[in-house]
Design a binder for these strands. Structure first.
Length: 545
DNA sequence: GCCGTTTTCGGCCCGACTGTTTTCAGTCG
């Protein structure tokens, strides 16, 4: 089948343009030229019509798109890329671009490292740091060299795991040949984990039929398990794990005279195999309540399932709003109006606008308030005016109290001084919680999965203090953060600390990430009433006041 | 590279922070 060639999306065009911006930056080009590409990428991504269908003349009418970039967009629409981009790609080694992931190394530094020291790989970088050659560069000293050396060590040690979006990119390829309904993604992905080592999939598809297509997938850590509908239940169970959970479950089965295998429960006495089409049937056969995948970590869930007293877990449908969103007023790419529309689409009662304090002047807050008042009249989903206020290096907040007092909700977050020692960084957070206007501590550990470790904050002290001050802790639902980790959620819940699930959405598509945050909350055994944003608007406002 | 126009080139977002500085450059959000 010839199948119509799919028109290239605005997102894909924007992606090419921002790649161009990155490469230009490393190449040492004028930063305004770099920004021009970034701006153009943003514009394209935001269009309400497909740019691929536009003529060059139509494209130049879009602000931020001139003759040159318009021509390049036309080229992308036809060939998928453009000449200048490909030329740059051949000039700049791929291993060099990866080094942007080293903490403390930005594009300008990378340019210097490359041009002046000939550094192209992480090995080169570590060698140069060890030989004290970095400090010979203009604007460099011993401290900067040490910062980068540390960043390089972390970069090398970065875990070989995938974030959920990385997994989903692989799964998108899988969909091309595994029909909907014929497979389930299992493993730690199904258990809602923040990072995934191995993509596990159980399928009833015909092995011979898909083998060839399978080879075409960049199958990093992809593990397909073939089964048939009659055995689907045990296949799912065994493939979902976790290992500890399965060990304990196998004990339960053994006590009843069975061995647990992906093919079924086989009788120890006569070898007969009972097969199960669903997990529920397996649990039921073993005299247990069905255990949600997120709980399967052997943290006491099996015992509770045997007593039929599993906790009531929060569900995505319990969520009534989002507590963390950015707009164009700071570093977001969405307008207030777009946020309200997204909220309506999701059936939310409210979304809290929480732009960065460092990027929003008090006058702008007043303007946001006026705009929100107008927008709220046209939408079911009500916007609230909040802020993500910096907890600065010295522990003070980014706004004075008189500004904070006028906001509907205040998230306080750390965005600097990541290297401070445990006591200092912890005291910063504790002092923020002391402020009566602070409602939530945002992304409490500051980790960026695969990029930056958590700062040295002592979460047990934070949780204890949150219980005293009545401050909520955020479960940041961004798949690049997923901060807090489940055991801390569990601990906070036990102490009676409220958890606030926020997507930290910078563009409308990211409100979808709520599901990741809720999965994490479930891993932390949270019930609906542990989660702040399951409250109806009026109750939320009551809690805030 | 784009824009606006004072049609031929200068300005383009920014605040906190850090390290290198003695007045600034680069990173990060």
């Amino acid at each position: 089948m010839m199948g119509q060639k799919k028109e290239i999306t605005n997102r894909e065009i924007a992606d090419r343009l921002s790649t161009m911006a990155r490469l230009l930056e490393i190449a040492g080009e004028d930063r305004h030229k770099v920004q021009a590409y970034e701006r153009a990428a943003r514009r394209i991504e935001h269009l309400s019509f497909p740019a691929a269908g536009c003529s060059e003349e139509e494209l130049t009418r879009i602000p931020g798109i001139g003759v040159r970039i318009a021509g390049q967009i036309r080229e992308i629409a036809v060939t998928g890329t453009f000449a200048e981009l490909e030329t740059l790609r051949t000039a700049i080694p791929g291993s060099l671009i990866e080094l942007l992931g080293v903490a403390g190394v930005g594009p300008r530094t990378l340019h210097l490292l490359w041009k002046r020291l000939g550094i192209e790989t992480i090995d080169d970088l570590e060698r140069a740091a060890k030989a004290r050659r970095l400090r010979t560069l203009p604007g460099f000293g011993a401290k900067k060299e040490e910062t980068i050396a540390k960043g390089a060590r972390q970069f090398r040690r970065r875990p070989d795991t995938m974030t959920r979006p990385q997994v989903e990119a692989v799964l998108a390829n899988l969909r091309a040949f595994l029909p909907e309904g014929e497979y389930t993604v299992t493993g730690s992905y199904r258990r809602g984990a923040a990072t995934i080592d191995e993509i596990e999939v159980v399928t009833i598809a015909d092995k011979a039929a898909v083998a060839e297509s399978l080879a075409t997938i960049d199958g990093a850590h992809l593990n397909l398990r073939f089964t048939d509908p009659a055995r689907y239940g045990t296949a799912l169970l065994c493939s979902t794990g976790s290992a500890n959970f399965l060990e304990k479950l196998a004990d339960v089965a053994r006590k009843k005279g069975y061995r647990l295998t992906p093919d079924g429960l086989s009788s120890i006495s006569d070898g007969r195999v009972h097969t199960f089409a669903s997990e529920e049937e397996v649990f039921s056969f073993l005299g247990m309540a069905p255990i949600p995948p997120e709980l399967r970590e052997d943290r006491g869930e099996i015992e509770l399932a045997q007593r039929l007293t599993l906790p009531d877990l929060v569900d995505i449908h319990d969520v009534r709003g989002d507590l963390h969103a950015h707009t164009v007023a700071s570093d977001g790419r969405q307008s207030l109006e777009e946020v309200a529309e997204a909220g309506d689409t999701r059936g939310y009662e409210y979304i809290v606008i929480t732009d960065h304090s460092s990027r929003v002047r008090p006058e702008t807050l007043l303007k946001q308030r006026d705009a929100i008042d107008k927008i709220n009249q046209r939408h079911t989903c009500q916007l609230l005016l909040g802020s993500e206020v910096d907890i600065r290096s010295d522990g003070t907040l980014g706004y004075p109290n008189r500004i904070l007092a006028d906001l509907d909700l205040v998230i306080a977050s750390i965005h600097s001084g990541f290297g401070q020692n445990q006591d200092i960084v912890t005291r910063r957070v504790l002092s923020a919680m002391e402020n009566e206007h602070v409602d939530i501590i945002g992304h409490p550990t500051g980790r960026l999965l695969g990029k930056r470790p958590a700062y040295a904050v002592d979460l047990f002290r934070v949780i204890d203090h949150a219980a005293e001050t009545g401050t909520a802790l955020e479960i940041n639902a961004s798949p690049h953060r997923l901060d807090l980790e489940d055991i801390y959620i569990w601990h906070a819940k036990k102490k009676g600390v409220k958890l606030a699930v926020g997507t930290d959405a910078h563009r409308t598509g990211e409100f979808e990430n709520m599901r990741y945050g809720i999965a994490l909350a479930r891993r932390g055994w949270c019930a609906p009433n542990d989660i702040l944003n399951t409250l109806p608007l009026s109750s939320l406002q009551e809690w805030l006041s």
